[in-house]
């Protein structure tokens, strides 16, 4: 049986990413094999330089692997042209970045529907309302980004990532610039999205508190996947990191 169609939303097979050449060569990913389960919220953790952002970029179709394969669903990304990749990101992927997530000239509502508008697709009004309500943004829709708090901006980004019903949402340090209260709010909303909508979410973070919201944590070091932890808590993650560091 092909597990890809039933339970795996994205994966890499022997993924290698090399930057530079010669003496300056850096192997950011070193024959990494990792898979992310559909319908679940997975966190990727690891020290700086462990390759976690590179992994996210390569699997989300923002960057190309040097060798090996990355898949979203059963689609091998290496087989796609630049244009096909763009369309794939538009249709199947949602993004939440650490900062500069929103277009300053568009209001919150326009930012949320941006991927649909770019694609020229109709907005599912009911789903839009649901997502907006879930992210607690009902009264902020006509505000421009500079009129929103950092936490609100990230929730708008999250709503944008969800509104096109992507197969998978990638979040790159989404709470990196937020205080603990806003972090808590944002991740609670993301948790709800996974629980209530069955949304697959892959999040890179170095914050154990944030990772604790996930169903599973994948630990990276030196470009390979060294461990996994199911049903993590902040404490168990911290303990694990200490053991790794020691």
């Amino acid at each position: 049986m092909d597990i890809g169609t039933t339970g795996v939303a994205a994966r890499t097979v022997e993924g290698v990413k090399v930057y530079g050449a010669g003496d300056l060569e850096v192997r950011a990913l070193d024959r990494i094999n990792v898979s992310f389960d559909a319908g679940r919220f997975t966190a990727i953790m690891g020290p700086s330089g462990s390759g976690k952002s590179t992994l996210l970029h390569c699997i989300a179709g923002l960057d190309e692997l040097t060798s090996g394969d990355a898949y979203i669903g059963e689609q091998r990304l290496g087989a796609l042209s630049e244009k096909q990749l763009t369309l794939l990101r538009r249709q199947k992927v949602g993004f939440i970045f650490q900062s500069f997530n929103l277009i300053p000239t568009l209001d919150a509502r326009e930012n949320i529907t941006l991927p649909l508008d770019i694609a020229g697709d109709d907005v599912d009004k009911e789903w839009f309302d649901t997502v907006v309500a879930t992210m607690g943004l009902g009264d902020r829709l006509t505000h421009r980004p500079n009129e929103l708090s950092g936490g609100q901006q990230q929730r708008v980004a999250a709503a944008r990532a969800l509104v096109s019903r992507p197969e998978i949402v990638f979040a790159d340090e989404p709470s990196g610039n937020l205080d603990s209260k806003a972090t808590d709010e944002l991740l609670s909303f993301m948790r709800r999205a996974a629980d209530e909508f069955g949304q697959t979410i892959v999040m890179v973070t170095h914050d154990p508190m944030a990772a604790a919201f996930a169903d599973k944590v994948v630990f990276l070091a030196d470009g390979i996947c060294i461990d996994e932890m199911a049903a993590p808590t902040a404490d168990s993650i911290l303990d694990h990191m200490k053991s790794m560091g020691g």
């Binding site: 923002l62 630049e82 244009k83 763009t86 369309l87 990101r89 538009r90 249709q91 992927v93 949602g94 993004f95 970045f97 500069f100 997530n101 929103l102 277009i103 300053p104 941006l114 991927p115 770019i118 694609a119 944008r160």
Partner: peptide, 16 residues
């Protein structure tokens, strides 16, 4: 630059 990068990430084609 960042704004355009974001638009590209969320699915804007080069043509757009």
């Amino acid at each position: 630059k960042r704004e355009i990068g974001l638009l590209r990430a969320v699915g804007m084609t080069r043509r757009q």
